[in-house]
């Protein structure tokens, strides 16, 4: 999986590419652990993300919890298969998906 970070002041865009599953989720978690300091607007660009597993959802949930205290978090460009996952798992109720 490829993670691309683009920081513009307090606005951070994280573009994910590939599969976010048990093996790659710790990588994203590690990067976000430090990257979220001082960020008030977090955007996940999932245009090139193919798959997300429950481990990946957990990382998004953690980020969501952090951001709910210091700003906002949105998820963008999730394709229909990802949307299915968000819907079925109920994460579409929690996360802001645009």
């Amino acid at each position: 999986m490829t993670i691309k970070q683009n920081k513009d002041g307090s606005k951070l865009t994280v573009a994910l590419e590939g599969r976010l599953d048990t093996t790659t989720a710790p990588q994203l978690e590690g990067e976000l652990h430090t990257a979220l300091d001082g960020v008030t607007e977090l955007i996940f660009d999932l245009a090139k993300l193919e798959y997300i597993s429950s481990a990946g959802l957990r990382v998004l949930l953690s980020a969501h919890k952090v951001m709910s205290k210091q700003g906002s978090m949105v998820i963008r460009n999730a394709d229909s298969s990802l949307m299915d996952i968000f819907e079925v798992t109920g994460f579409s109720d929690i996360l802001t998906i645009e």
Partner: peptide, 29 residues
């Protein structure tokens, strides 16, 4: 709450997954 789709067999039919919108998993928030 975010769990897999149940499968149901009606009478003598075949098992099919029942898909509907789920709630988030427990303990998420």
């Amino acid at each position: 709450a975010g769990h897999e789709h149940p499968a149901v067999r009606r009478g003598d039919g075949t098992f099919e997954l029942v898909k509907y919108r789920h709630s988030p998993a427990l303990a998420t928030m």
